[in-house]
């Protein structure tokens, strides 16, 4: 089976974004060294808290150090990627084998019943989901 012929076009082009550059990764810790000084961290506690807030997760004060440490170890390891010269790589890769997204006809299909829809709702009111008031 000739593999080179299959999937020879890279489907995903890079999402181009004008963003400010992150400070350089010079001097990253080798993957083997796991002892860590909080001060030398790539990502500080405030940043970790900001990311958690963005992800709608709360980190308790007692946990913040632990999360920050793990976070930095992982990021340091990932920073290895910077060794690779990707300037010539024009696109990312998605492993799906079809060249374009399948499309369906505009024909209505049966929906779920309202009971099925609300079956797992933590709180409901008549046929609606119920949440605390949304303030604009």
């Amino acid at each position: 089976m000739d593999v080179a012929g299959n999937r020879s076009n890279w489907r995903r082009t890079q999402v181009v974004r004008e963003r400010s550059a992150k400070p350089s990764f010079a001097g990253s810790n080798p993957a083997g060294a796991f002892s860590y000084e909080v001060e030398k961290m790539r990502v500080g506690k405030e940043e970790v808290l900001r990311i958690a807030a963005l992800a709608h997760i709360k980190i308790e004060p007692g946990e913040i150090d632990h999360y920050t440490k793990n976070f930095n170890e992982i990021l340091d390891f990932i920073a290895q990627m910077n060794e690779v010269d990707t300037k010539q790589v024009s696109s990312a890769f998605h492993p799906a084998s079809e060249p374009s997204t399948p499309m369906r006809a505009d024909t209505p299909q049966p929906s779920l019943t309202t009971e099925e829809v609300l079956r797992n709702a933590p709180e409901r009111f008549a046929d609606y989901f119920l949440v605390p008031k949304v303030v604009e």
Binding site: R104, D106, T107, P108, Q109, S111, L112, A126, D127
Partner: peptide, 21 residues
């Protein structure tokens, strides 16, 4: 007639949460 990514009807004024999947 149907939604962008599924076959639920788009018709206006249906009973709440009855055109969902």
């Amino acid at each position: 007639q149907t939604k962008l990514f599924c076959g639920c009807a788009t018709q206006f004024g249906a009973k709440p949460n009855s055109n969902t999947c």
